[in-house]
Design a protein around this nucleic acid. Structure first.
Length: 275
DNA sequence: TCCTATGTTGTATG
DNA sequence: ACATACAACATAGG
């Protein structure tokens, strides 16, 4: 279930392993999660290295080890990290196990849309440093959003919000939550947003990220019933603000939930872009 | 059996 | 070269 805040929470599952040596590494080199990763080198280097620190950016996690080694993990759709007993025996979906004296740090992913990356060097790997600036950073400005939308004129705003190069960490539920709060219809084409809407979009991006991190990123608490999130999957779910029956439809290849009436298409239907 | 799934990416087309 | 749409990836659960 991992989007921004969930990833941040899941990252911390391995915290008890920080500062401790990795005694052994268990993995299946042919697992899809290791596509493009040198697993032999990973195993060689990480064995005997100490786990030093971890960080999250967007939906990715970076684990820094001694020996200038870095482990990157993306959870995909079904990935998770768990902390297990030191004698843990990996099951079918446990693709990477870092064995320590007191624990096993485990990465599992049934669908294997996630991935494990590995890098050795004095600087952080390029695939980490090239992640787009966070929505909560100073670089996420209204004009940056406006510029991006202007290059995606004919794409529904819902699909645009899922683009990691501008909205890092936003996934399907966050995108719907943001649009719901900004009162923008998910089908509205990016190029038809009025200035006021762009401002609202920018503001709600930041609000949803900040609140989600606060609520979920700390304790994995449920989000309040006042959020669209809590109602989006239930049949007959109602808008927490208007009480109207929520609508669900596939937009941009993803199931999208919105509140009719609250989120309306502009008069031109959001279908036409002038110029 | 059939449908769904909180993600990305490669490929085809405009 | 850029924008857009969508199948494909692999598995489990309702």
């Amino acid at each position: 279930m991992p989007e921004l805040a969930e990833v941040e929470f899941i990252r911390k599952s391995w915290n008890p392993g920080l500062g401790h040596r990795v005694e052994g590494v268990l993995l299946h080199p042919s697992a899809k999660v290791f596509r493009d990763t040198d697993t032999a080198r990973l195993k060689d280097t990480v064995t005997g290295a100490t786990l030093l620190s971890s960080a999250t950016a967007a939906k990715q996690m970076l684990f820094r080890l001694s020996k200038d080694a870095y482990l990157g993990i993306h959870l995909g759709m079904t990935g998770e990290l768990t902390l297990e007993a030191a004698d843990f025996k990996p099951g079918k979906h446990d693709h990477l196990v870092l064995q320590q004296k007191d624990h096993a740090l485990v990465f599992s992913d049934p669908r294997m849309f996630g991935r494990v990356q590995f890098y050795v060097g004095p600087q952080e790997p390029e695939w980490w440093t090239s992640i787009a600036p966070a929505i909560l950073s100073a670089k996420f400005t209204v004009s940056a959003v406006a510029d991006f939308l202007s290059r995606r004129k004919r794409t529904p705003i819902k699909a645009v919000l899922l683009m990691q190069e501008r909205f890092p960490g936003v996934g399907n539920w966050m995108a719907d939550e943001i649009l719901w709060r900004a009162e923008i219809h998910p089908k509205q084409l990016a190029g038809t947003l009025r200035e006021k809407q762009v401002h609202a979009l920018h503001k709600e991006c930041r609000w949803v990220c900040r609140q989600a991190l606060k609520i979920v990123g700390e304790k994995f608490d449920d989000l309040p019933k006042t959020w669209l999130f809590s109602h989006r999957w239930e049949d007959g779910g109602r808008c927490p603000k208007t009480g109207v029956l929520l609508k669900r439809e596939e937009i941009g290849g993803r199931t999208t939930c919105w509140s009719p009436g609250r989120q309306k298409l502009p008069v031109d239907g959001g279908r036409k872009v002038k110029g």
